[in-house]
Design a protein around this nucleic acid. Sequence first.
DNA 1: CAGGGTAACTTTTGATCAAGAGAAGCCGGT
DNA 2: ACCGGCTTCTCTTGATCAAAAGTTACCCTG
Lengths: 250, 250
Amino acid sequence: MFNPFLLRLMHAAELGDQEIQAVEELCRQPRDIGAKKYLSRDGDEMHSFPVVLSGWAARYQILRNGARQITRLLLPGDAFYFDCSPNGIAIEEVITLSPCKIVNITHADMRRLIDRFPAVGEAMRSYGCMENAVLASWVVNVGRRDALERMAHLICEAHYRLSLVDAHQGQQIYFPLTQDDLADVLGLTPVHINRKLQQLRQEGLITLRSKQLTIHDLRTLQQIAGFDPSYLAPRVQTLRERERLRVIAA
Amino acid sequence: MFNPFLLRLMHAAELGDQEIQAVEELCRQPRDIGAKKYLSRDGDEMHSFPVVLSGWAARYQILRNGARQITRLLLPGDAFYFDCSPNGIAIEEVITLSPCKIVNITHADMRRLIDRFPAVGEAMRSYGCMENAVLASWVVNVGRRDALERMAHLICEAHYRLSLVDAHQGQQIYFPLTQDDLADVLGLTPVHINRKLQQLRQEGLITLRSKQLTIHDLRTLQQIAGFDPSYLAPRVQTLRERERLRVIAA
DNA sequence: CAGGGTAACTTTTGATCAAGAGAAGCCGGT
DNA sequence: ACCGGCTTCTCTTGATCAAAAGTTACCCTG
């Protein structure tokens, strides 16, 4: 089993063998956890942060009127690292959307690691930039795109992000969001999601059945969404590095 | 003149005299810059990052259809640090919304500083968490709040963030956003912004004239917005530290 | 038989279009 | 430096329209 979190970091900065080994070390004891379990609750003191090694999770907020907005999707390789207020208190809830493999890394361990290997600190910063970019793209999505464009953009984003940590990823991806979840990601109602999903299906762009999403026409989907993956693109790698990445991912 | 960037970092982590001095060192050469000037353009290689010492700036994206969405407001003390793709290319544009005092810090300098003083690295991480939280709250704002609530929330956020770096801040704040800008922050049209602004005025909650915003009834505003500042709250400080902060801010 | 998905219909919110009033900067002239 | 007068942003308001939300009920499948 390869480690998608490590892969993320290697996309973000060049790591040597020692660094790689040290990161692996921290991911030793993953635990399996079911769908709809909390990884963090509002007000928790975060001595450690969860890292998703497989499965999907979501960070969200609930408003007074009961409305929910998902503010982030945690896909394999994603960490809940830049997600607490400066006083170390979790400000949002995180829930698994599917069965997941999770490892918890203490902030103390991470700090020690960064002190020893500055490159890891740089990789985390870079990872933070990526997260920040995704978040900003969500603001744009919800703020300025209509329902169909939002759906298309989300699908493109998910597909691209998954492809970064799983080379075997084809046009068929595991997509465990229910229509209710989608509504809470895109700031729409479930009924509306359904309609727009229909539209994408009718136009022959996707099929989505029992959490399997197949993309038939990525080009058109990107076209609709105005999707440009450069905001997620990994740093340019040397040939040797790319080779090593392939070995690790195998 | 105190340094709001330093203040931000001190809210985020406990810094000693040496760290403080070293940060001050990096902010030595601020430059004045007018309104509507670019601090970063799409595709720029970011060898350094701008820090806003006074004035307002905004990060935004433009869509194919010409629509603009502001994804972040840079207030005094804010840094454009977690805002490039992993390959170091700026992915969004940043423009000043008012005359600003800006200092550019090279990534190389920052890395050296962090290597020497891990506490600064921790402060930057913590600052990143705050940014991330603001971004997430914007997703919620645009995704699940109606026009009036969004306006109210933005005002509460701006007021609170400014109060963190300027102790003299009262209920009257400098608020240079035009109604067009507001529209692009909140994902609405300028016309609609105007109407909702009228409503807030008529209800006696605010006055806004020539870039001066006065908040008459913060409580009700927060009520409307469902605003809870804990996501922005600084880490708890010791009494001695708070004293020192006051001296620095004076 | 419950949860998730679909359909039809009504209502609301916010967008669009258009036109005019203020305000603020810019210019040349004294 | 001071002053009209011009241009260009901003802001304001009304009328009309479309997108998406609310509501309710039905269906399908595990």
